[in-house]
């Protein structure tokens, strides 16, 4: 195909801020976030939609941003790990992960937080099994998941109280 591939104009709202960019159609959403917007908290850990390090929310649902093109996110509302903390401080999940040592190298953490957040938004008091199923598509190579599960429980408890 020798023709010129047109860049596509897109508008995306990320963490409450709207961006307009012109992108190559093949640009993955995760690359868009990292390279175009400088939001490097969302990571790439595999290429086959296994590890979940790139998990973000699109219109409130957790998605793997390495398995979406940026053009598909045109007009959508995204939340990344950078959007979790507010002026009031860290999200309860962020606090709980630190408090309960739910992270070591930190590479999977943003994706893990976003998957966990999706769970707590619809199930304020999940069981161990529900947490495990929720993060089944997020690989962590450091923690053995034990403290991640503990952290999600702790955050759930804090969110229930507040």
């Amino acid at each position: 195909m020798s023709e010129f591939v047109e860049a596509v104009d897109i508008e995306v709202t990320v963490n409450g801020k709207t961006y307009q960019r012109s992108v190559e159609p093949r640009l993955l959403l995760v690359e868009f976030l990292r390279e175009e917007l400088g939001l490097t908290g969302t990571h790439i850990g595999c290429d086959t939609s296994y590890c979940g390090a790139c998990t973000i929310h699109m219109n409130g649902a957790p998605v793997k941003s390495c398995t979406l093109f940026a053009v598909q996110a045109d007009g959508q509302t995204l939340t990344t790990v950078e959007g979790l903390a507010t002026d009031a401080g860290l999200h309860p999940l962020q606090k709980a992960f630190s408090e309960h040592h739910g992270l070591q190298c930190g590479y999977c953490t943003p994706g893990m937080l976003m998957s966990a957040k999706a769970l707590l938004e619809r199930n304020p008091n999940p069981s161990d099994k529900e947490i495990k199923k929720q993060i089944a598509g997020n690989v962590c190579r450091c923690t053995g998941y034990q403290n991640i599960i503990k952290s999600v429980h702790a955050a759930a408890a804090e969110m229930r109280e507040s």
């Binding site: 390279e35 490097t40 908290g41 790990v81 630190s98 040592h101 930190g106 953490t109 943003p110």
Partner: peptide, 20 residues
């Protein structure tokens, strides 16, 4: 609790590919 966590839970770590 670890010092490192503050940046890592915020997505503000600096891994090699984050350097652009």
């Amino acid at each position: 609790r670890r010092k490192e966590d503050s940046r890592l839970v915020r997505g503000r770590g600096l891994y090699v590919d984050d350097y652009q």
